[in-house]
């Protein structure tokens, strides 16, 4: 009996941790999936925007002494603009080129941005000094039996839920969101209706980058480790989450992120922590093999 309780509380603790992580993956994954929805491009540099988000917030707080909660919106705005710039410089000139060209450019931008970060911030791992962060983050919000949840975890979950909700409203209740969906279904007809396709694509990059930057800030806090290559691993995992849910589908990315986060934490907890990353890759490979359209994917889906 004692043993059983012990097991179930471990289970719940893992679930809480998995959801926290999954929320972050979902935040990044929607960026991949939205951009894919409108221009059929896997934006490999998306992970780097997430990394820049983490670094920018860190620099604002530690170097410029900007309060943490003010650094968040600033970082998000800068990264949103950066996403637009990325599309403008790297992808827009290739809109009519073969898709492989844009894909290779995306990989190139990813490597370029990693090295840019390396130049600016150096290679060592940065972490927030505790003093600059709200104290409450590290205090337990509640302890039930063996299960604990810190305020930081609650903050991450809350931010994730709020951002997803806002995203849902944008996509389904606004004119530009409807235009995003229209473009993902038929670009030529969208242009014939007078939709400025390029402007809507810019908007899509802005939204995706904003979500990615938020994720970067959250992960920077959660693991307290910020480094130029952090976008690589997170990017691949979020991409796996997007594929798992069905690339192009926003609800799919949310679900995929959640499932992947939980699978990863459970795998690490019950098998061995070294399997952590392997689990994401295994999930991605299994999905590609057995259900390439993803969990929510219809063969041709509503996309965005």
């Amino acid at each position: 009996m004692e043993n059983l309780l012990g097991m179930s509380s471990l289970f719940l603790q893992q679930l809480v941790n998995g959801l926290t992580l999954g929320g972050v993956y979902a935040l990044i994954a929607v960026g991949y999936t939205m951009v894919y929805g409108v221009i059929e491009l896997i934006n490999f540099a998306h992970g780097e925007i997430y990394m820049l988000g983490a670094f920018l917030a860190y620099t604002m707080v530690t170097v410029f002494g900007i309060p943490f909660f003010a650094a968040i919106p600033l970082t998000i705005m800068i990264c949103a603009c950066f996403g637009i710039l990325l599309d403008f410089i790297a992808y827009r000139p290739l809109r009519r080129a073969p898709r492989l060209a844009a894909l290779i450019t995306a990989i190139g931008m990813s490597i370029f941005l990693q090295n840019l970060a390396l130049l600016i911030w150096g290679g060592q791992i940065r972490s927030y000094p505790r003093a600059v962060l709200p104290k409450a983050f590290f205090q337990n919000a509640f302890v039930v039996g063996d299960i604990t949840m810190t305020w930081l975890q609650i903050f991450i979950l809350a931010v994730t839920v709020v951002f997803m909700f806002i995203l849902h409203l944008i996509i389904h209740r606004t004119q530009v969101g409807t235009a995003m969906r229209a473009i993902s279904q038929d670009k030529v007809t969208s242009a014939l209706m007078g939709i400025s396709v390029n402007r809507v694509i810019s908007f899509t990059f802005a939204i995706g980058s904003a979500m990615g930057a938020m994720a970067g800030i959250l992960v920077g806090l959660y693991y307290n480790a910020i480094f130029p290559y952090m976008g690589y691993n997170a990017g691949i995992k979020a991409f796996a989450a997007a594929v798992l849910g069905g690339i192009g589908s926003v609800p799919g990315a949310m679900l995929g992120g959640g499932v992947l986060g939980i699978a990863e934490v459970f795998g690490a907890g019950y098998l061995a922590s070294e399997y952590r990353d392997g689990i994401s890759y295994a999930v991605m490979i299994l999905v590609i093999l057995f259900k390439p359209s993803g969990l929510i994917g219809k063969p041709i889906l509503e996309k965005v």
């Binding site: 969906r181 279904q185 038929d186 030529v188 007809t189």
Partner: peptide
């Protein structure tokens, strides 16, 4: 071919 947006 009309080209209605099928999922709107």
């Amino acid at each position: 071919g009309r080209r209605i947006f099928p999922y709107l």
